[in-house]
């Protein structure tokens, strides 16, 4: 137990980093997901194809490869090193968040797309016949219902993202998994660390689960 107690401040700090990475990537990913799901249901061919291939590529390759391409790969390009982007891309922290957000954005766009597609056409027609404009119909009818129906699947995606942030440790960040690996390789106590750090992750999973259940209850209106 001693190594865990000695490293407790570090573990606390890394737990906060994991939370931070998760929240940032989920929020940015949510925005990306919404935009791409709208592109996916739009009638403009080029938007549709762009969104389709974006989600195809990011869901078809491991997050591990994506984060390495962004962190190690992009640094190789001269014009990126000369541009303003370099200020962001040279920091592993931002590279990790960019990779996570793009990844979860792809999955989120698929979740919302199926939410939009499952909406009863009669609802939209009824709204139109009541004289609501297309924008108003979308904002007050289609979007809330689609989001509500997507909640359970989106909760799973949030948990997957939480687990995904462990990959930040591969680009030198000391998140929970990174610190866990450090403690294991210096004190050689894998089981102890696994139980302790694993419980923290399970606790976070439980928080997400409770949050989603709360939202589902709150949006139950028909």
């Amino acid at each position: 137990m001693k190594p865990l107690i000695d490293n407790f401040p570090d573990l606390l700090k890394s737990a906060l980093l994991t939370l931070e990475l998760t929240i940032f990537s989920i929020l940015i990913g949510l925005l990306i997901g919404l935009i791409f799901s709208l592109m996916r249901i739009s009638k403009i061919k080029i938007l549709y194809f762009f969104s389709y291939y974006y989600s195809f590529v990011f869901r078809g390759t491991p997050l591990f490869v994506q984060i390495f391409i962004i962190y190690f790969g992009l640094a190789q390009l001269e014009f990126i090193r000369d541009s303003i982007l370099w200020a962001v891309l040279k920091k592993p922290y931002w590279c990790a968040i960019i990779a996570f957000a793009l990844n979860t954005g792809a999955y989120t766009s698929e979740i919302f797309r199926s939410g939009f597609e499952k909406i009863d056409k009669n609802l939209v027609e009824a709204a139109n016949s009541l004289g609501l404009s297309n924008l108003k119909t979308f904002l007050t009818i289609t979007l809330p219902i689609a989001i509500k129906r997507s909640l359970p699947a989106y909760g799973n995606e949030m948990i997957l993202m939480l687990k995904g942030t462990s990959l930040a440790s591969t680009v030198t960040l000391l998140d929970l998994t990174g610190t866990a690996k450090y403690i294991i390789s210096t004190h050689f106590n894998p089981v102890e660390v696994f139980i302790f750090v694993g419980s923290i992750y399970l606790f976070f999973t439980f928080l997400i689960h409770t949050f989603i259940k709360y939202l589902e209850r709150k949006f139950r209106y028909y």
Binding site: K163, T170, T177, A180, I184, G198
Partner: peptide
């Protein structure tokens, strides 16, 4: 299903 894959691999 709740613990990151990397942690399991390290274990």
């Amino acid at each position: 299903r709740g613990v990151p894959e990397l942690l399991v691999i390290y274990l």
